[in-house]
Design a protein around this nucleic acid. Structure first.
Length: 99
DNA sequence: AGCCTTTGACCAGCG
DNA sequence: TCGCTGGTCAAAGGC
């Protein structure tokens, strides 16, 4: 397909869109968590000319555990990725929905 | 047969 | 109010 390979993070995602974002001149693809009650989402962004420039942006927390177990190494890598993008996540949207 | 991605349409916010 | 931009929907096709 047109999208670069998505790094495994232990959760199951459904892709629901892809756009070229004019401001940052990157492709962006949109995913939501497969559990329908869970509001967690993530995006992939990459330069069209360089699929290896892919980065993952997580937004929202899962309300359930990971359906697939990860190795300790993978867990730490995921946590590091999440921390790296925490700042961007907070700017993007309201993190919690008081319902 | 049924799941997932692809893709243009649709929509809301904003200048 | 109109057009641009980014986020989501959903039909259609692929695997």
């Amino acid at each position: 397909g047109r999208s670069p390979m998505m790094p495994e993070d232990g959760y199951e995602w459904k892709k629901y869109g892809q756009k070229f974002i004019q401001n940052i001149r990157k492709n962006r693809s949109y995913f939501k968590c497969r559990n329908r009650r869970c509001k967690a989402k993530k995006r992939l962004e990459w330069l069209p000319s360089d699929p290896s420039s892919i980065r993952v942006i997580y937004q929202g927390a899962h309300d359930h555990p990971s359906p697939r177990p990860q190795s300790n190494l993978e867990q730490e890598a995921s946590a590091r990725r999440a921390n790296r993008y925490n700042l961007a996540n907070q700017v993007l949207g309201s993190p919690s929905d008081p319902s």
